[in-house]
Computed example of a mutant assay.
Amino acid sequence: MDGEALAFMLLSALAILGGILMLNLRKVVHMVLAVVLTFLSLAGLYVTLSAEFVAVVQILIYSGAISIMMIFGIMLTKHNSKERRTKTPVRTGLVGIGVIVFFITVYYAIENLFYPTEATNLHVENTEQIGILIFSHYVIPFELVSVVLLVALVGAIILAKNKEADE
């Protein structure tokens, strides 16, 4: 087993562990930290795939910004940590059947996957290639996304101010 396979096994195990912890932990803040573990391990997987730009974006956007937004959302809302659904055998069975169907579907999708000839220059200077594509061919969608994010930010501020005035 070479180092790349070992890194893949370790990072994928951490991603799965983070997902399992997120589902099984009781405190919401601990759940967010488990999601951060999953995000960081996915960034490591992107690095092993020679997608450094996507890995950095994964760390900056998801591990940083989205996680902080989740923590602020938790802190600013009222929640009762004792509200938990009870596990019933029917529900557990349906979840188990869903998991089995999902894994069978993924297995057959991977098994029947067609690999074309390898691209030799795909990972060479991929950040530069992404920058050239974004700022030459996709400038308008890039700017529209920034306008939508600005509108969402202004809307969130207006909604927060209205709730403060009502209280």
Rank of each mutant, 00 (worst) to 15 (best):
V35W: 15
R26K: 13
M75D: 09
V54W: 00
V99P: 00
G44Y: 14
H30R: 07
I100M: 14
S63Y: 12
S136C: 04
M1S: 11
L150H: 04
V56Q: 00
L14C: 08
I66K: 00
R26D: 14
L40P: 00
E52C: 03
L42M: 10
I132K: 07
A51P: 01
I140R: 14
A7S: 14
S81I: 05
A51N: 05
H137G: 02
L33E: 12
K78P: 00
G64K: 00
H30V: 04
F114M: 01
E4S: 04
M1I: 05
V57G: 02
L113V: 05
D2V: 04
L17Y: 11
A165D: 06
T92H: 14
Y138K: 01
G64F: 09
E83A: 06
E167A: 11
V151E: 03
G73P: 03
F39S: 14
I100Y: 15
E4D: 11
K161F: 12
D166R: 06
G73F: 03
L17V: 00
N112V: 02
L153Q: 07
F53W: 06
E128A: 04
M70C: 08
M75Q: 11
V32L: 05
T120R: 14
V147D: 15
F142S: 11
K87D: 15
L25T: 09
